[in-house]
């Protein structure tokens, strides 16, 4: 009886938090009900008692599968600051996790993202299906939203705000596989040339050798700035991940006055663009100086004017010299 009541309460509280979360993401200024949030956090303490570094080092029970537990450790503070941080763990992880040992079917009962994000999933699925990760069925089958977007950690761009933090967060998702042979092998398909042997991970530095200041790029922009197709202004980033053949290689796409960064990494900030102190794309300049994109048109005009004056001045001086030299020659004759 008590257990049933507890389950129902948890589900209701989680649903409220989920609805709030959805509203907040939709731009609605609805604040989370502090009571519900507090209730969920208290409920989550029971999960973090095991599923955290502290829990792992100080297991509350002796009969736990520590190997499995090691793969599911989260930082309660990081979770609390994430998109889903106000929710009860059991909203997604279902009732099979109320007790320990967890239910055999617990994992398969975990709610899919589409349960809350149905519209988003419907919009993004065709894009994802065209993506390099969905090209082979064997690889596609291993991918879920959570493969790239860790629901225990990630925070949406509009909430994270700082483009440099967004770049770190989102690139981590790509590099977790593409910078680790071990993780890459878990998802890799067989090599086209050698069936039965898994495709080897290409070295991330080698394949990006053509890109000047590679490391700087990885600190300041996301892999997906180049590895997703161009989208119209005010449209969210595409989930079609492009391979190296299709990825953007035209530097001017970002490094020009009409920088595509405005529709990508800085999309959520563009509404605040005010050309501060006369700088074009000052909103980008607030985080990064992007040569070609973050210019000062007035300063450029002054500099071009001064160079033109210098050039014009010497040409005029030279022309007058020639005229006077011809006149002097004429007088001598």
């Amino acid at each position: 009886m008590f257990r049933s009541w507890r389950k129902t309460t948890a589900a209701v509280a989680a649903f409220v938090a989920c609805v709030w979360s959805f509203q907040a993401h939709a731009g609605d200024a609805v604040a989370a009900d502090p009571e519900v949030v507090e209730k969920n956090r208290k409920a989550n303490e029971a999960c973090f008692a095991c599923h955290s570094e502290f829990g792992f080092k100080n297991p509350p029970r002796t009969d736990m599968d520590m190997k499995k537990l090691a793969e599911t450790l989260y930082d309660p503070k990081v979770f609390a600051g994430s998109n889903h941080g106000t929710m009860d763990c059991r909203q997604c992880h279902g009732q099979g996790y109320n007790d320990y040992p967890h239910s055999e079917t617990g994992k398969s009962e975990t709610s899919p993202c589409s349960e809350c994000h149905a519209t988003k999933v419907a919009r993004l699925e065709p894009q994802y299906d065209a993506s390099v990760h969905a090209r082979l069925e064997s690889v596609k089958a291993k991918f879920t939203c959570a493969t790239c977007h860790d629901p225990h950690i990630d925070l949406g761009a509009t909430l994270l705000k700082d483009p440099l933090k967004i770049a770190v967060q989102d690139n981590k998702a790509c590099l977790e596989c593409h910078d680790s042979d071990e993780v890459f092998a878990k998802y890799a398909a067989d090599d086209d040339k050698t069936p039965g042997i898994k495709k080897k991970r290409p070295n991330i530095d080698t394949i990006h050798e053509w890109l000047p200041n590679t490391k700087r790029h990885w600190q300041t922009v996301r892999c997906v700035e180049c590895h997703t197709p161009e989208v119209k202004a005010n449209r969210p980033l595409s989930h079609e991940i492009l391979d190296k053949e299709k990825a953007e290689k035209n530097c001017l796409s970002c490094h020009s006055a009409n920088s595509s960064l405005k529709t990508r990494l800085y999309r959520h900030l563009v509404k605040d663009e005010q050309d501060r102190l006369g700088f074009t794309n000052s909103i980008i300049l607030s985080s990064s100086y992007v040569i070609g994109a973050t210019r000062h048109p007035l300063l450029d005009k002054i500099v071009i004017g001064l160079v033109a004056l210098t050039l014009g001045g010497v040409l005029l001086h030279g022309a007058i010299r020639i005229v006077f030299a011809i006149r002097r020659k004429g007088k001598k004759q």
Partner: peptide
């Protein structure tokens, strides 16, 4: 690099960056 613009094709951007460095 500074005046990078599709309408001003001087030296291709990535090549210009490499040479400049």
């Amino acid at each position: 690099l500074h005046f990078a613009d599709p309408k001003l094709p001087l030296v291709e951007f990535a090549l210009a960056a490499r040479i400049h460095d």
